[in-house]
Structure formats: structure tokens, C-alpha cells
Design a binder for these strands. Structure first.
Lengths: 224, 224
DNA sequence: GAGGCTATTACACGTTCATGACATGGCGCG
DNA sequence: CGCGCCATGTCATGAACGTGTAATAGCCTC
């Protein structure tokens, strides 16, 4: 019925859910960590990702953001923590649904179906922001209809930022998520990349419309 | 931000939710029964319908099916019954999400956003206190609809205070938490920052509505 | 009315960011 | 195998902006 990627570190839960979903004619692929999940996703074109929050290595929220940056796959979060605070945080990180463990497979499946029903009508991963067009499938960017060639890092940065328009990211967050650097310390690397990106996508780089500076905090993609 | 049709027969719940959603800049229309809701929907082009299941007259499931038949509006079901059976049934009747009462407005709103994200752009989460709106994702503040630019420290102070409305913080606490200074000692630094902040967000800085002085103790955010 | 607490304003220093030049390194092409 | 280009990361400079401090004025409380 659907292609499901299950990211969950507990083998018992993972196997139980995988089995149940397969029994309902879904195609299921499993991963035990965030890293593994992201890697699988690159090759297994999932319709929906079922994502545990408590993962070894990079946590569920970060995995969620990275999935959002790269693809338009739907995400159902799965967590043992059901406080209002957690739920709101999860949904704001970009999840389509948030389910509290333990969960009966029937319920999980019903929620997956509800999420997919919503997605069906939205085929195009092309997002357009003003004159800027970002196509996450072909990884191309165009500005006022004319295609813009972006080097890898600038493209990754743009994808990441534009996946959450309006949200402010610190340089540190960007170094970790986009560059996958883990060292702490001051670096003007992000700044430099932002400048180069602006030179290519902004009409007036000195008054950026898309990639904006938030003094003292970091950068944000739009809104104007 | 979004147009919400709220179908709920209990006037208390209805008014509370309507008020909370309006406070977050949504446009809200209410209906007390299924018939009234369907009729409203014909004229009020809602982005999402929040639908109680226990309604007088035609029940929530039937309303859901009729909405689905007529329009592509998203539906968030609201019910006091949270059995797995009910949840699965609700989602299979065509709901996009199913929320169990009682629900905190923040959670309902986060779920509405998640549902809308699929069809619309991504509006960011907004806390609103009277005429003051604080958007914690994009780090923007607006007063009576007009955006206010705040320098980093003033913004951090406002974010910190408004995260716990009503609670009093001493200058020392603020120095530690907002400034991350650890030295003890008298400093009028917090005062100065508060003044600058007031000048920007208060209508009458001399009679502050949002950032209030508690003589001898410190400052507090609201209540209005 | 005195003392302590807070508001208000001004100014100079420090931080932060933009910008462009430069060094490094990988990759493809000859 | 070697050359050269392009992308990336680092650095130095300069400007803009915000911030902390201090000095003064106002207010509340006892």
C-alpha cells in the first residue's frame, strides 16, 4: 500500500511494528539510528517515515529537520513522552503527526493512512518563494524563471533553511546540520557561505530578501 | 493566519478554543451543531474544520463525511473518547487528525498547523499577549500588527520573561539566565535593558502593560 | 522629608557582521 | 600523470550597531 521507513532503535518495538505494517501490505524498511535512517532514505523512496524520538546519535528532532530539508516525505513521530510540550515541539519541528507509545499497530496504521491521504494531492516537491523556486527532487534552483547553478554547500544550506521558512538557525546549528561539523568554536564559515549564496540568489545582496541575518542569533530564510 | 471553522456544541469549550485560536491570529467562525457547521462552511471558506464528534442532530462522523464529499477542507476531529477504536474510526471516516479532549489550545493549534502545512505554507508558531505577538521561531515581535525590530539582548529578555507570564524574576536571576553573567554585584544593567525594551513595545512606557516592575523584587511579564 | 529604589538619558567601547582577497584541496580533463 | 579550474574554508579590514556604564532625575515608602 505504502512505502514506510521505520526509524526506531528498540529492536522489539521495531520488529513488532514492521511485522504489523507488513501484514497490512505496506513495504517496510527499518533503521536503528538516525544516521542509518537518513542513509536508507536516500535510496529507499519512502512515502512516510515513522520516526522514534529517542535515538542514539543524532536525535529524532534533528533527523526530522534533515528529512524536511532534503525531501517532502511525510513524518509520523513516535515517542514515549506525551506531554503537551513534547507534542507541540515535535509538530513544530515539522512532523505531520505525533503518536505516543505504546501504540497499537491499527492506530499507527490509521494515522499513517491519514497522513498519506493528505499528501496525495500534493505531488510536487517544488517550493516557490516569491521569484525563487526550489525543486527538491531535481535539486535545482531558479530565480525569476532563470536557472541558478549552486555549488553543493550553498545548495545544502539553501535547502536546509528553506525547509523551515521563517525559523532562525544559529551558526552552530547550521555547522552541525548542514556541514556536519561537531567542533564547537567560532567560525565565520557560515557567514562566508551565506554571502556567496546571496550573491547568486538575491537581487540586492546587501538587502537580502531570502536569506536574512538576525543579528546576535543567526540566519533565517524569508519571510520578506 | 488560517481560517478555522469550529463545530462544537458545548459553549464553554467552543468559546475557550475560539478565543485561544483568535489570539494566535487565526480567523475563527463557530457553529453549535452539525447543520449549522455545514451551512457556515458553504459561505466561510475555511482552511480547516475543528469538529466535535458528540453533536446534537447529525453526528460528527456524518458531518465529516459530508464535508469530505463536498470540499477538500482539512478536518481535525475533537472527541472526549480516546479509545483506539474511536481513533481509528475517526481517521477512517476521513479526518486528518484526531484529538482527545481535554486539549490545551497550544496542542490543538500545533496540530492544526501540522495539517495545514501540507496544503499551505508554514505559518510559524506565535504567542500573543494582548496586542503583542511574539514569534519564537522567526524571532520576530509585532505590536498591533506592526513589526517591531528588537536588538538581541532586548529580544532575549522579552523571550525569557514572556515564557513565564506572571512570574517575577530578580535582576540577579535575569543576569544569570539572560545575560549569562555569573558575577554577583549590583548592576543597573537589567533596568536599562528593560527601559529600552519598554520604549519599543509599550504604548505608554511609563505605565507598562507587558514588562512590569515589582518594586524590591524585579520584573515580571504581564499579566495585562 | 529622608532614604532607598527605579526611570531616563547620553556616550564610548566592544562586538558582530559584510566584504573581498587569499590559500588549500579536490576533481576532471587533457 | 599533470595541469588548471572551481569550490571551500580562513583571514583581515572596516563599518554599523548594540551594549554596559555612569550620572541625573523621579518616585514610592516609611
Amino acid at each position: 500500500m505504502a512505502r514506510v521507513l521505520l526509524i526506531e532503535d528498540d529492536p522489539n518495538v521495531r520488529d513488532a511494528l514492521a511485522l504489523a505494517l507488513k501484514g497490512r501490505e505496506h513495504e517496510v524498511e527499518s533503521a536503528a539510528s538516525g544516521e542509518e535512517g537518513l542513509e536508507r532514505l536516500a535510496r529507499f523512496a519512502a512515502d512516510v517515515v515513522v520516526l522514534d524520538l529517542m535515538l542514539p546519535g543524532i536525535d529524532g528532532f534533528e533527523v526530522c529537520r534533515r528529512i524536511r530539508a532534503a525531501a517532502s516525505t511525510s513524518i509520523v513521530m513516535l515517542s514515549a513522552r506525551g506531554d503537551d510540550f513534547d507534542v507541540v515541539g515535535g509538530l513544530e519541528a515539522g512532523a505531520d503527526d505525533y503518536v505516543v507509545k505504546p501504540v497499537r499497530p491499527q492506530v499507527l496504521e490509521a494515522r499513517i493512512r491519514a497522513v498519506l491521504r493528505r499528501t496525495d494531492g500534493v505531488p510536487s516537491p517544488v517550493e516557490s518563494y516569491g521569484a525563487l523556486c526550489v525543486d527538491r527532487a531535481s535539486l535545482t534552483v531558479s530565480r525569476s524563471g532563470r536557472q541558478v547553478a549552486l555549488p553543493p554547500m550553498e545548495l545544502r544550506l539553501l535547502l536546509y533553511l528553506s525547509a523551515a521558512p521563517g525559523q532562525v538557525f544559529s551558526r552552530q546549528q547550521l555547522l552541525e546540520s548542514v556541514w556536519e561539523h561537531d567542533y564547537l568554536g567560532d567560525s565565520r564559515l557560515v557567514d562566508a557561505c551565506v554571502q556567496r549564496l546571496r550573491a547568486k540568489i538575491e537581487d540586492v545582496p546587501a538587502q537580502p530578501r531570502y536569506v536574512q541575518t538576525v543579528r546576535g542569533f543567526g540566519y533565517r530564510f524569508g519571510p520578506v
